[in-house]
Every structure is written in structure tokens, then in C-alpha cells.
Design a protein around this nucleic acid. Structure first.
Lengths: 227, 227
DNA sequence: TCTCAAACATGACAAATGTCACAAAACATC
DNA sequence: GATGTTTTGTGACATTTGTCATGTTTGAGA
């Protein structure tokens, strides 16, 4: 049967449905797997795009440096929705970096293999387009949430994002610093810290360093809605 | 030869490269063309997605209503980069509306035809993925520009966007109202108006109602960079 | 032409957010 | 442990941005 170790890998759902088990062996052999530790920037803005990369496990941030050397965070990606797809087919050079926020496993294929697959396997192509669309949709919609809310709404959105989409728990270890929340929302660090302190004082959340516990989720959602 | 009237249509560049002239006739016959006037909302948030639509000419805005019935503008699309692709493959219902800002020509195909094409014509699939990626990239990158700049930077970004990407001229008729700039940037209307007035007073632009003339483009770009 | 509604504009003031200064806590490195 | 660096936290104050009020201009339609 399949000797591939990526049994649990998300990308499997793209391959399995559309590729015969025999061919699957070939693709599994062509696959490289890389375990990176927290803080590793494994894709760098400006690098040539030679591989198709997929997040098997972990959590990452997509970020870029603007013309004034300010760091901006574009989005976060977890195994369910991250592939470096937004760049890979459009450009030949990455216009953002990707850095692990937690220990992560990256699978990669030579991009030629994937392009061949798209051209020769219609079902795969359709599935890939679906994945790209959903991923792009999510980034655009998250971005809009940040753009059109003010301070408390923005910070609430970030806390709720990790609770609802990443950890699926009202209690979690915040994988990013206050500074990174600022870089994501476009706010100043102090304002972010103050907002979190205020949520704490108002009994909406409990904070122990990076550990966040959402006490009054409805209240936090209400704040998100109204500011 | 080809009796199709869409000789000048942008989508042609997707089809022509990848479809034999004989098949092209079939696709041209299956195509519907719709001319909509300014202000027409031809795609509605919540509607079922049954067709693949493409902007042949004109200018549109992508927008949605949030839970408080506030109108938010996501992005603008012109013939070079607009297809309703971000939704069409991921979801079965539109999660945003599209409205014409100028008289526009919309081409549409039954979505089944396009999905068939993706599955049976590899070159087409690859080209479509490219188009989707580039379009999503642009929206994400524009959104980031708005997110991480303050007042003057945001407004300058909008004015420069129309000058550089839509009209390719430093003098143009602004296709949106001040209110719509506010909905796009997340600012209040008054603040937008004030900012434009200030640009005018500082000699960066001339304003005659909706007509904008950028006098000092470098100055405006500098403001964009620094705020 | 007249009328009404929407868009544009500006002032005065309130509220939100950023900046600067400083300190405590957390964390890495020796 | 000792030391230095980064992160978190808070106050005071300046600046930015929003809100409300009010008036003018523009544009569509009777």
C-alpha cells in the first residue's frame, strides 16, 4: 500500500481524491518534509519561487517589510488553510515572508510537478482552485474585519480569531506578542496593551502573560460588533 | 472564422491561448453579454452562484454589508483584473456584492462550462489559477496598504490608486464619492473630505467637484509613505 | 425653473489613538 | 545566580480622528 508518511497531512485531501494510489507513491516520494522551529522564517520576501509548499502542522504568519522597514503582518495560516498559493502561480518571486509561530511541518514539491498535475489532472486542478479561492477569501475577509473596526474591535477580533479558528478554545497560549498584534492591526503597541488591560479590568478576559482566557465571549463579540 | 464579438475581451487571453479556434465558437455561443449602467448592482451578496462572470469593460466595486448594515467597500476591479473568482469556486453563495461604478460590460458563462474546461483543458486551468492568484494578490496587497496607514496615507493611497492603476493619468474624474472613500478606508466622511481639502490647500492636488488633478505626485507619494 | 435630496464642506468640540518617558516582569545568555 | 535585553505595563500629554451642527453646492426629476 502507500508507504507515504503523510497520512494525516491535509494536502492528502487534495491528492487522495484525485490521484490513483499508484501515482500517489510517486508524489509521496517527490515530497520533501521540513520541520521548522518557532521563529524560523522559511519563506523570505524576494526569494525565487521554486517550490509548492504546504503547511502540514503548526501555525505561521505571513508578513512583509514596507519601504520604511516597518514590519507588517498580512495574515495567519494554520494547516487547514495555508498553502503559499497566493504567490506561487501569480509571481515568480515571493512578495511576503512566512515565519513559524509554533513548531511547524512544511511539505514541499517542485513547482513543476504541481503545474504538471494541474495540466494533466482536471480533478486536482479544480480542487486546487477551490483551495486557493477559499484561502484568499479568508484572508480578504479577515483583512476587512481589521480595516473597518476601531481599536477595541480590532483587538477583540484578534483574540476571537485565535479562540475560534486556531485553538477552538476560549483558553489558549497567545502565539504572538503584543507587538505583533500591533503589526497586524496597524495600531501602536501601547494602545494594544492598554486595550487588553481594559478587557481584563472589565472582566471580559483573564490574562497571565501570554495565556488568554476568554471569560465573557458574548461581551467580547459585542465589542467587536460595535467598535 | 470566429464570429464572436468578444475580440477585444480580456478573457480572450485566457481562452485563445488554450482553446482551439473551433471550440472557441462553442464557448462564444455559450457566452452572455450584459451591458450595465453606472450604479447597477449586478451581483448581490447572498445570491446563488450559477455563473462565471467576467468584466469586459468598465469599473466596479466589490462591497458588502456588515451585521450593523454598514456598507464596506472591499476592493475595486477593472477589466484587467476582475473576475468574480474569489467566491465562485470556494462558495456556492456570494458573500459580497458587485456594483458598476461606470458603464460596464459583463460577460458570463454557466459555471458548469468553466468547471468542465478546468477539468478537461490543463492549459486553461493553469491560466485560470494564475489569474485568480494575481487578482487575490492585488486585493490583499491593496487592503494591507489601507490597513497600515493613517488618514493622509489612506486617502493618498486611494487618489494614487485611481491615477496609477485605473486611469493611468494624473487627471481624472473620481468614480466614487467621498462617502465611498470613507467606506473603503474605514474613515469617517468628514475626515476624508477634510483630508482632500488639505491636499488641495497644500497644492498637492486640484479639485473641481469630482475632477481630481494631481499636481505634486511625488509629494503625494511621500505623504503616502510617511503616514 | 423649482424643489428636494444627496453630496460636499467647514467649524467646534469630544473621543480615540499615538508618543514619550519610565518601570517592572519575563527571558535568554553567560 | 548575575547580567543584559526584550516584552509588558502604565501615566501624562499631544495629536489624530470622529461626531454633531450647520450651511452650501450639485444633480435629478417634477
Amino acid at each position: 500500500m502507500i508507504s507515504c508518511s503523510c497520512d494525516q497531512c491535509e494536502i492528502k485531501s487534495i491528492f487522495f481524491d484525485t490521484i490513483s494510489s499508484k501515482s500517489l507513491d510517486f508524489y509521496c516520494a517527490a515530497r520533501k518534509e521540513l520541520l521548522v522551529e518557532k521563529g524560523t522564517r522559511f519563506i523570505k520576501q524576494g526569494d525565487q519561487i521554486k517550490e509548492f509548499k504546504y503547511l502540514k502542522s503548526g501555525l505561521v504568519k505571513l508578513h512583509k517589510t514596507d519601504s520604511h522597514n516597518r514590519e507588517q503582518i498580512i495574515s495567519f495560516g494554520n494547516p487547514m488553510d495555508f498553502v503559499n498559493i497566493h504567490n506561487i502561480f501569480g509571481n515568480d518571486v515571493y512578495d511576503y515572508s512566512i515565519t513559524a509561530l509554533e513548531p511547524s511541518t512544511i511539505c514541499s514539491f517542485d513547482i513543476k510537478i504541481i503545474k504538471d498535475l494541474v495540466q494533466t489532472n482536471g480533478a486536482f486542478a479544480l480542487k486546487l482552485i477551490n483551495t486557493i479561492s477559499l484561502s484568499a477569501n479568508r484572508i480578504i475577509s479577515d483583512s476587512l474585519k481589521i480595516r473597518n473596526h476601531s481599536l477595541y474591535g480590532k483587538v477583540a477580533a484578534v483574540l476571537l480569531f485565535f479562540a475560534d479558528h486556531i485553538y477552538v478554545s476560549s483558553e489558549y497560549e497567545l502565539p504572538i506578542s503584543r507587538k505583533e498584534i500591533a503589526q497586524y492591526t496597524g495600531l501602536s503597541i501601547e494602545t494594544v496593551i492598554r486595550s487588553i488591560s481594559e478587557f481584563r479590568r472589565d472582566g471580559l478576559i483573564k490574562v497571565f502573560g501570554k495565556r488568554i482566557e476568554i471569560i465573557d465571549k458574548e461581551g467580547l463579540e459585542l465589542i467587536y460588533e460595535n467598535s
